[in-house]
Design a protein around this nucleic acid. Structure first.
Length: 826
RNA sequence: GCCGGGGUGGCGGAAUGGUAGACGCAGCGGUCUCAAAAACCGCCGGGGGCAACCCCGUGAGGGUUCGACUCCCUCUCCCGGCACCA
């Protein structure tokens, strides 16, 4: 970098600094993170510093990170990111005066724990209790977060799942639960059904087995009732845009039309199709019904049913790559609703029963899949929108209509409206909206979950277990292995299954499926504030006071499932009048994922980094700071520990600098006050935006300057205090110790303790202006802040270097920007 | 394939359209020391020059602008999500 006089001066100043820098006074003992951290964790716990008064009407702030799924492996480094991140945010809010509630719990039910228990041959309840104790006492408590352990939650304990069952019954009574047959995805290894969100590319997300299609009677939550509301409400939420976008895509709202085609040659009289492109109606050359359509037999002439069923039994599974050669001509005929043309009716797996109406009008000229299918089976392709070359492939853009009767020559966007109007007039169709999102399948044929609180009575049907008989305890069974027959292992516990019907008193059987783990976690944030209230899932007063959650941090891997289910549950409860707010999380930020060698950390990959050893070796403060300093909080990245010594040195400097900064009187120094106010303002802004890495960089810079000043004997006490307060959210133990050592009796984390920031005092008096010639830096200029453009121009043009470069030429133009730059164009 | 996000020193990363590389790691040089470690200080994108300085440089190419890492277009690679959704 081209540097002139200022550098020379800087060098000189530093040399001087070297001379005056002396080792720490002998009275200063060495910083021992282990001792300091243990001491303060003990004191905080004894004093109950972080027990929240939930009844108080103070400025409340509900600060939450997604709770962990306790597994035998323990928490890895990646888990510590959200917990450190939320704690920094919570401590910062507390310093700003909020009454912060920051609870923690355990998502302890579910297939993951159960699979592990099966593997090691222990009971899941035993494994779970051990894992929870390890997570809490050996790991979570070690990071020095201000979790309020008086309000922890464990979804696998009866005092929690009692209310999960209660919640199920509220939904049941509100008509939001259905027991119905449906095509479900079945994992042949986990031996249970999966929600479609739990299937990735045709494989089970837990065990990677190829999933199968099954037809089972199952419990469903009607989340699709809220598709539009949940989509609309996204606009009101302060969430990471990427997360909102994923939810929008998942909900998948599509505008289009339903169109009726009469049928001939089969039992069924007509078929309704859904299309997003009604403008292509004239290009429909055949109709396709989903291969998994439950009434497919009705679409085929009676004498061909055997053939159809034989074909159906040979279909490839759901994991197969799209194969457009698979299809069967059903032999019946569809009548085009406008032209009256006779179109063949086919069945194929490329059409899905679960979306739209389960049947389509195929327009091979303008849809890639229809084009591929038509090519495979020799079906006609008719172009109805110009703009592409339909002999080579489908053209799905817009254009001018052709081969469309009276509409020829019209832009297709316009034709779309005209065709819908035409269909509505003749009652052959209507404009409609369809969503990609499906209902939530919550049945699991497994053991380790809350039994669904329903009793099947031969006379009264599906009868809810009365509230006063909750919880339906999960029976202790010796053999909890999944059966693979489509029923849960609970079905083998005869004395548990056989009950009397609450309505008629006759013999009846319990529902033997348990509910999806995501149901447990869809309402845990409602439980935290009320864990100490008996007799209700969540106390109305507490809930109104504390919900919605003000800040929620978690991984984007839960962007659709957990966050969507939670929103649905909250919204439904709101509509039932049970909670005041329609949305559970006002603000949500996804943290970045820490990976190791480019892969997600997991035991199976053998790349798990255990945080315990780092905390043991460097201390929790250093570890927290290091994780936050790795990069932008919301970005994530590869875990390396090469840089951790930088943080160690930083804390050493803080330890030394703050204790040696003793100047109280005569420390009025306008320039240092300016620097101090700048620090407060900048750190404040950075924390608010979760820019923890840059906040730490500012603190490092400040601490080095303070350390130099302190070593020279003129470090200001007020600078030390400011540094400690601004650093406190990141490094809670060391700052508390130093706060005490520098003569304070209260806590550095006391509510409302954040240093006052005055933006005017933070403003710079002098600024350095870049002087460019044709956009290239040629000199700099130091001027009073706010100097006018005219003055900047004049001063710049007088600089010797600039005079030299101009060599007498007259500048064509001189651009000046206050406090920034002067650009001389020649 | 579609929808997002990104590509900046040896490395992690900073930069409201205005001095690219803050902060940190590693490296090099130094202070201290009998020595080493620790700690502290300095240097640290590439090239040229004795020096003053000059040229090049934010994935590639083009554009807008007095001025572009930042805005626009095309391409490319990486990461994430969705994926037979009509």
């Amino acid at each position: 970098m081209p540097l002139g006089l200022p550098v020379a001066r800087l060098r000189y100043a530093c040399d001087e600094m070297t001379a005056t820098t002396s080792p720490s006074p002998p009275s200063l003992d060495a910083y021992d993170a282990g001792v300091v951290e243990a001491k303060w964790r003990r004191i905080w716990a004894e004093r109950g510093d972080y027990r929240t008064d939930l009844g108080s009407s103070d400025r409340h702030f509900y600060n939450l990170a997604m709770f962990p799924y306790p597994s035998a492996e323990g928490l890895h480094v990646g888990h510590m990111v959200p917990y450190s991140g939320i704690d920094i945010y919570g401590r910062w809010r507390r310093l700003h005066g909020d009454n912060v509630f920051q609870p923690m719990g355990f998502d302890a039910f579910g297939i993951h724990s159960e699979n592990y228990a099966l593997k090691i041959g222990e009971h899941p309840a035993v494994v779970m209790r051990r894992a929870v104790a390890n997570f809490r006492d050996n790991q979570l408590k070690m990071i020095g977060a201000m979790f309020d352990w008086d309000h922890q939650v464990n979804t696998a304990e009866p005092d929690y799942y009692r209310w999960t069952q209660w919640l199920f019954l509220r939904f049941f009574k509100a008509g939001l639960v259905e027991w119905r047959d449906g095509a479900v995805l079945w994992c042949p290894s986990c031996l249970t059904v999966l929600a479609n969100e739990q299937v990735e590319q045709g494989r089970c997300e837990r065990c990677d087995s190829i999933v199968e299609n099954r037809w089972l009677r199952q419990w469903w939550f009607k989340i699709t009732n809220y598709a539009q509301e949940m989509l609309d409400a996204l606009d009101t939420l302060d969430w990471s845009e990427s997360t909102k976008l994923m939810q929008r895509n998942w909900i998948g709202r599509r505008e289009g039309a339903r169109i009726v085609f009469d049928l001939e040659g089969c039992e069924r009289r007509d078929v309704v199709v859904f299309t997003t492109r009604p403008d292509t109606l004239f290009g429909a050359t055949f109709v396709v019904v989903a291969a998994d359509h439950p009434q497919l037999e009705e679409f085929v002439p009676i004498d061909r049913r055997g053939e159809l069923n034989a074909w159906r039994n040979r279909l490839p599974g759901p994991e197969a790559e799209p194969d457009f050669s698979v299809g069967i001509n059903l032999g019946s005929t569809a009548i085009h609703p406008v032209t009256g043309a006779r179109l063949p009716v086919w069945a194929a797996p490329y059409v899905l029963y679960g979306y739209g109406t389960g049947s389509i009008m195929a327009v091979p000229a303008h849809d890639d899949r229809d084009h591929a299918f038509a090519t495979e089976h020799g079906l006609p392709v008719v172009e109805v929108i110009s703009g592409g070359d339909v002999s080579r492939g489908a053209y799905s853009g817009h254009g001018e209509m052709v081969n469309s009767g009276d509409l020829d020559g019209m832009p297709s966007e316009e034709g779309r409206k005209r065709i819908v109007e035409m269909l509505e007039r003749s009652h052959r169709g209507e404009a409609t909206i369809t969503y990609r999102m499906r209902d939530w399948l919550i049945s699991r044929q497994r053991y380790w979950g809350p039994p669904i609180p329903i009793i099947h009575c031969p006379k009264d049907g599906q009868v809810p277990v009365p509230d006063d008989q909750l919880p339906v305890l999960l029976p202790e069974v010796r053999d909890f292995r999944p059966t693979g027959t489509g029923v849960s292992p609970l079905a083998t516990v005869e004395e548990w299954v056989n009950v009397t019907c609450p309505v008629c008193g006759g013999p009846a059987r319990r529902e033997t499926d348990v509910s999806d783990t995501f149901l447990d976690s869809s309402w845990y944030y409602l439980r935290y504030p009320s864990t100490d209230v008996d007799g209700v899932a969540f106390d109305a007063d507490r809930t109104d006071r504390w919900l919605p959650v003000n800040m929620y941090i978690g991984g984007n891997e839960h962007a659709v499932r957990h966050l969507l289910y939670s929103r649905f549950v909250m919204r439904a409860l709101h509509e039932m009048g049970l909670v005041g707010a329609p949305e559970p999380f006002t603000k949500f930020r996804a943290h970045g994922m820490i990976v190791k060698d480019g892969a997600k950390m997991s035991k199976s990959r053998g790349n798990v980094i255990n945080p315990d050893e780092y905390i043991e070796k460097y201390g929790a403060d250093t570890f927290r700071l290091y994780l936050m300093f790795l990069g932008p909080y919301t970005a994530g990245g590869d875990f390396r520990d090469e840089g951790i010594t930088g943080v160690t040195r930083f804390l050493q400097r803080v330890w030394r600098g703050t204790q040696n900064a003793t100047v109280v009187e005569g420390g009025e120094d306008a320039e240092r006050e300016r620097r101090r106010h700048r620090l407060i303002g900048a750190v404040d802004e950075d924390i608010a935006e979760l820019r923890y890495n840059t906040a730490i960089a500012l603190l490092m810079e400040f601490s080095r300057e303070l350390d130099h000043e302190a070593a020279a004997g003129n470090g200001r006490r007020i600078d030390a205090e400011t540094l400690l307060l601004c650093l406190a959210p990141f490094a809670p133990h060391i700052t508390e110790e130093l706060w005490q050592r520098t003569g304070h009796e209260d806590s550095v984390h006391a509510r409302g303790g954040w240093p006052r920031h005055d933006p005017e005092l933070a403003a710079r008096l002098e600024v350095e202006i870049a002087v460019q010639v044709n956009g290239k830096l040629r000199a700099t200029l130091t001027v009073p802040a706010g100097a006018r453009e005219e003055d900047l121009r004049q001063r710049a043009l007088e600089l010797p270097r600039i005079v030299e470069l101009l060599a007498g030429r007259e500048p064509r133009k001189v651009v000046a920007v206050v406090d920034r730059v002067v650009n001389i164009v020649i």
